[in-house]
Design a protein around this nucleic acid. Structure first.
Lengths: 354, 354
DNA sequence: CATTAGCACTCACCACCACAGAGTGCTAAC
DNA sequence: GTTAGCACTCTGTGGTGGTGAGTGCTAATG
């Protein structure tokens, strides 16, 4: 069954009711009753009919009842249906109300695109402020980025500060330990050597080259080359894991997190970044906006949460992932729109100036 | 009235009772009754006597009753008395149980002391893990640090990456905009000029020099000097505000934060770092361990919280402040011990290798 | 005269109950 | 196929009484 078929598998009436319930519930987290639907959404049937439809939707697993005599609440599956329907019609949900914000955002983005750290910080901030959910961003994997230039500076205790620039805008500095006898001139020569030989290679490629070089006895006799190898070995040993997170505190104001346990869950999920990191990494190559709803999450920490993610690209190459994390009762329409918008804007900004 | 007098203003019995109540309450956040005190703390009086003493302590504002017929609870003033007594006897509260942890910590510290960012990250982490409170650290003000070296590298779009190293271990990189015609050789000359002229000066002093230089017409004719001025202007324009925070999520497990409002308060205080930043800054010059309890805080966001802070020094010069933030019902003895210990260890590590 | 035993009193907490209100499912009528 | 009517279910709220911890006071005690 294709997605289209799936979406059309519900008759028009049922869909209207499902959407009414979901949208009402998103707006206000209270079980939605049949009478309420007839009043607020002009479907044109009596409460009794709506009740029958709701009963069917419950049987189909799209709605649920907290208890016998309460209204209906969407299930994860219900949200899934809703989101699929939302994503399918070529994302025609344009919202002019944010046009101003986005223009402003695009302008700021342009001034920051050269430093990914600054940029992603700003991006998560903007995302979370606009949505009230938690904005996260995962920069491109350092190993996959393109070497631009390295610089070595003598520092305290005979240490050396290595600064690595990549074409993507990653800037890393790291203190490395290396022969303390080396003078700054020596370091400059090593840096020059690396810079001249490797521009345009990815870090991964460079690492491969190094392995090859290390097998070459002749190269090892050359003290400069062997020191250059040592420099790279230490510098490229990133502790992967710079996840940008913003808006956790504001998200706590959402009624969904009014209970302390939920907040802990969310906080914990963010604290041990591994889970989210792995999750976002999966989306790095994916097209368009991706949504994971509640229990669809394999990791238990995120089972009460939903994630709306999109990857950014520069001329096709992945340049990181941005996402919003919120409760399953999320304003998906808004979240999808925003994530999509921001991801597109980032990609556009990158591509423009190349 | 000297502190000593003040501490001795309570007779021995009253002190014992006060301390019993405080320690019991710190251990378990429940009002402490007179019978409980007699059972747990061998003061040697009957509940009735303890009740009289408690009544006196309440009158003195050191204890309080949540409601008539409940036990007593310490007030901020009560904690203050307790802390003063704790701080006064030359901090003789040595705790061997942490000796192992501290030794391990000292070893790790030594490998990190050259990069303050890494070090402070580790420090807040250690502090919060050991205490279950929120660990925070404020590095030395960039403007007050000592210039060590600057490096300039051409980067994308004719931008320049400026890397600033200071003697203290601060490493900052910043993208600056400057004449895009400049070659890397030009940049190297500018950096060399700055490096040879300024080693050992503080950033503040350098800024003063620049202002002076800018008045000198002759200097402005020299294109290199005027460009060097421009570089510094942009590079030294830090957005002060790198506060290291760790352990917020674990602190949420404390019973004191079981209510959602308190967590929000804490989170908010940490989010708009200004408050805490200003607060810690006040301690940068202070001696020993400083404690601020609850309402003693001038800023309303922190009125339910206590802060235990100490500054780190390198041969007398302030090198940043570390602190623990927790509920007023804090294990002050433990917190003071830890903050003191860690701050001393940091200072020692700095001084050792100089 | 400080200390203590005894006692009445207060208040939070809990379990219990009744009741109103919202919403359902079912049945019979349209 | 749709709807009106109705009995039923369940939650949330407010009131009530009992229990227990802990107090303050008073009078007795060493």
């Amino acid at each position: 069954m294709s997605i289209r078929d799936y979406i059309e598998s519900l008759d028009e009436r049922s869909r209207q009711v499902l959407f009414a319930v979901i949208e009402s519930y998103i707006h206000k987290p209270e079980p939605v009753g049949s009478r309420f639907v007839t009043k607020k959404y002009p479907i044109g049937f009596s409460p009794a009919t709506i009740r029958n439809i709701m009963s069917d939707l419950e049987e189909a697993g799209l709605l649920a009842q907290p208890h016998t005599s309460a209204g209906r609440v969407p299930t994860d599956k219900g949200y899934r249906y809703y989101v699929d329907a939302l994503l399918n019609p070529a994302g025609g949900v344009s919202k002019d109300s944010y046009a101003g914000t986005m223009q402003d955002f695009a302008r700021r983005l342009d001034t920051m695109k050269n430093d990914l750290a600054v940029m992603f910080h700003e991006v998560t901030d903007t995302l979370s402020r606009m949505s009230n959910y938690v904005g996260v961003a995962l920069p491109p994997k350092a190993a996959k980025t393109t070497f631009h230039r390295i610089d070595l500076m003598k520092y305290r205790d005979g240490n050396v500060v290595a600064i690595l620039l990549t074409d993507e805008g990653l800037i890393r500095n790291k203190i490395i330990k290396i022969d303390p006898e080396l003078t700054q001139d020596d370091l400059n020569r090593i840096a020059d050597y690396l810079n001249s030989e490797n521009r345009g290679r990815t870090i991964d490629e460079m690492t491969l080259m190094l392995v090859a070089l290390m097998q070459d006895e002749k190269a090892l006799w050359d003290s400069m080359i062997s020191r250059a190898i040592e420099v790279c070995k230490q510098t490229f040993n990133f502790n992967e894991g710079d996840l940008y997170v913003s808006g956790l505190y504001d998200a706590m104001d959402l009624p969904d997190f009014s209970d302390i346990g939920k907040i802990r869950q969310l906080s914990r999920a963010i604290k041990d970044k591994h889970t989210i990191l792995r999750l976002l990494d999966e989306f790095a190559e994916a097209e368009g906006v991706n949504v994971i709803i509640g229990r669809e999450n394999t990791s238990s920490e995120l089972q009460n949460l939903s994630i709306v993610a999109a990857s950014c690209r520069e001329s096709g190459r992945p340049m990181g992932v941005i996402a919003l994390i919120g409760p399953t009762r999320m304003d998906y329409s808004k979240a999808i729109f925003m994530v999509d918008m921001v991801a597109r804007q980032i990609s556009r900004t990158f591509d423009e100036h190349r």
